[in-house]
């Protein structure tokens, strides 16, 4: 019989998060972010968090909400360009920031979940990113050693899921969610639709439920768009 991971909601999902912990949060920009868990983390008020997330949200949404309340001590991201409060806290030294190449960030999470402690990549060789890292040549090309990332909690967002924690993502909202789910000691998945066990075709599940410890259906999703870019019907 399938193992049930279903919890009541974000409150039960976030239970156990404490100050000083390391969290992973899925999403690219505001696309595919765990909106309900972030709202709950703001309520919980845990501080001195290390957050691993590709981006840092915008001033009034996503991780920007945790930044506003000064709950984050350190961010590990690849791109943080959309958030003035972030830039202010970073330049003033309140916030520690580790910027790492996007592909290395994805692979470091994947490695963390896959039991691979480190790997060599060409990305960042000869740049600030390589400072203090072992360099080794393979096929005559220099590579740098990058270590795996794991987290006390990983918060991910999927389109559909079942009580076994199996997940299906929608379009480009998949992004970092699967690897972060793999790398969390406790992975909390929030879904738009929690479907009955057996309703998902096992051939079409994107993330096996073994990587998920808690799952709940979010009550509401804002799904904000950062750069609404459209063609007007007349000119098209």
């Amino acid at each position: 019989m399938a193992i049930s991971k279903t919890v009541e909601g974000p409150q039960a999902g976030c239970a156990g998060v404490q100050s000083g912990m390391t969290l992973m949060l899925g999403g690219f920009g505001l696309c595919g972010i765990p909106e309900c868990s972030i709202a709950e983390l703001v309520k919980l008020g845990a501080k001195d968090l290390t957050c691993i997330s590709n981006n840092a949200g915008v001033d009034d949404f996503g991780l920007g909400l945790l930044l506003q309340k000064r709950q984050i001590r350190k961010m590990i991201s690849s791109y943080v360009g959309e958030n003035d409060e972030f830039e202010r806290q970073m330049l003033s030294g309140e916030l520690e920031v580790d910027l790492i190449p996007q592909g290395s960030l994805a692979e470091r999470c994947r490695a963390g979940g896959a039991g691979i402690p480190a790997f060599f990549t060409p990305a960042g060789y000869g740049t600030e990113v390589a400072e203090g890292k072992e360099v080794r040549e393979f096929d005559g090309k220099p590579h740098i050693l990058e270590s795996a990332l794991t987290a006390d909690f990983a918060f991910v967002k999927a389109w559909k899921g079942d009580s076994a924690g199996n997940l299906v993502f929608k379009a480009t909202a998949r992004n970092f969610n699967p690897m972060m789910a793999m790398a969390g000691k406790i992975t909390v998945a929030e879904v738009e639709e929690l479907v009955p066990l057996g309703a998902l075709d096992p051939n079409e599940i994107h993330l096996p439920g073994i990587f998920v410890q808690r799952i709940f259906q979010g009550a509401h999703y804002d799904k904000r768009i950062e750069q609404r870019t459209v063609q007007t019907r007349e000119t098209a």
Partner: peptide, 22 residues
Amino acid sequence: PFPMDGDEDADLINAGKQTITA
């Protein structure tokens, strides 16, 4: 290309966070 006005989907973006189509 970019979607027609009204067809944009928050779950479908490019690396510049712009709405796109598939």
